[in-house]
Each structure stands twice: as structure tokens, then as C-alpha cells.
Design a protein around this nucleic acid. Structure first.
Lengths: 105, 105
DNA sequence: CCCCTATATTCTCATATAGTCGTACAGGGA
DNA sequence: TCCCTGTACGACTATATGAGAATATAGGGG
């Protein structure tokens, strides 16, 4: 892995390393939503949601479809969930290890 | 996904969203290394490397083994590379899509 | 055409943190 | 014992960026 590639990949991880953005991606799990819908769903501010969506879109995490006044954002693919699944599996493994440590105390 | 879980997962992604830390993890690909070796390998400052290692260790990304004066850090598992592989696959897909777009211009 | 709504952008502020320096602590060796 | 080396820690600075307010832009309806 060259330093340049590492930087690019780090940028992708950093994008996911923000609860607000994961929240948005999670809200999109069941299908496309408009910005306003995402604002209502997540409780974040409109400008804030819009900015996060720009970033997610520029990195290819979400799709963007404009229809009249509304812009519909959706998940570009299911990779995000594959990534989250790996993280969650790690969390489970940690939790089990900790439980075992406590049990053997 | 509860907001709490989202926060925890985001913390994991954020840890990987830093080139210096990915650099360290990449250096550990071939086996354990001491802090000083990692300093030489990555060109980062000693205190800096040490701090990054603390974080990576606290999140379970690296193992820690003390032997006399030296502390050997190693990859806790291969998950990091599975995660990076997914990101790299995305990059490739992006690149191909862009190439097609340019070709059809 | 004017107005209303949905989205994007700009600006500012506050906060988080990467990096560095100096130092403290631990573990060997003379 | 006293040094020397490897590692960790605390304080500080500079920078990046998330959040919100105000504003700009775009698109549709009267």
C-alpha cells in the first residue's frame, strides 16, 4: 500500500467515522429519502444533513437523484453494511472475551 | 442500529480514518514490531506513534506484548485488511466507471 | 411575474485531535 | 549503585471540521 492509497482509504474511513453520517446511511437502509425526510428522521439540522450528503456522495457512498424541487438520496451499494458488520462482529468478540475474563476472575 | 451502537462503530471507523494509523497497521502486516521500529518504518515521531498505538490497542486493533525494555505490537487480526479490501474494491469500481465515462465522451 | 418551498452554500464559532517537546518511568547493563 | 535506552505521558499549538445561522439558488404554483 502506497502512502497515497493509504491516504485515500483513510479518507473513506474518516467519512464513516462520524456518527451523524452513519445515522444518515442507516436511515437510507430502507430506500431513498429526500433531504427534508432525512432531517426529520435524524433530528440533524438541514444545512448539516446537506453537507454530510455532499461528502457521502462525493465519495460514492450515496446516490443522488433530482426530481423537481426534491433530491432523493439513496445508498449507492451495500458495502457500508458489510463494513459495519465486520465492526459489529469485532464488538461481539470483544464483549465475549470480556465476559470470559469476568467469569474467570 | 441504536444511536449508541452507531457511535461506537463510528469511533472504530474514525480510528482507521487517519493515515498515520493505517500506515502503522500496514507496517505491522508482516509481523510484530517495537515502537522504535515503527518510528523508523513510518517516519513519525516516537510520542506520536506511541499515542496512536494506545488508541489502536484500546480499540482492539493491535496486540501488545512487553519483553524487557521493548514493547512488541502486532495486528490483533486480519479484519483491518478485509475492511481495506472493501474500500479498495470500491475505488477500483469508481475508477472503472470514470474510465467508461471518459471513453464515451 | 412574484412567492413559496427544498436544497445548497458561505460564514463563523466551538471543539477535537494530530503533532511535537519535554519529561517521567521502567528495565537492563556496567 | 548509577547510567542508558525504550516507552509512555502531560502540556501546548496548530489545524481540521462539525454544527448552526444567514443567505443564495433552483424549481414549481399562483
Amino acid at each position: 500500500m502506497t502512502p497515497e492509497l493509504i491516504g485515500i482509504v483513510a479518507g473513506r474511513f474518516k467519512a464513516l467515522g462520524e456518527p451523524a453520517r452513519l445515522e444518515i446511511l442507516n436511515a437510507l437502509r430502507d430506500g431513498e429519502m429526500t433531504v427534508t425526510e432525512l432531517v426529520d428522521e435524524t433530528g440533524l439540522g438541514q444545512a448539516n444533513v446537506s453537507k454530510h450528503l455532499q461528502l457521502l456522495h462525493s465519495l460514492g457512498f450515496v446516490s443522488r437523484r433530482k426530481d423537481g424541487l426534491f433530491v432523493y438520496y439513496g445508498l449507492a451499494d451495500r458495502d457500508v453494511f458489510r463494513l459495519c458488520d465486520i465492526m459489529c462482529a469485532r464488538l461481539e468478540a470483544e464483549t465475549h472475551a470480556r465476559r470470559r475474563a469476568l467469569a474467570g476472575r
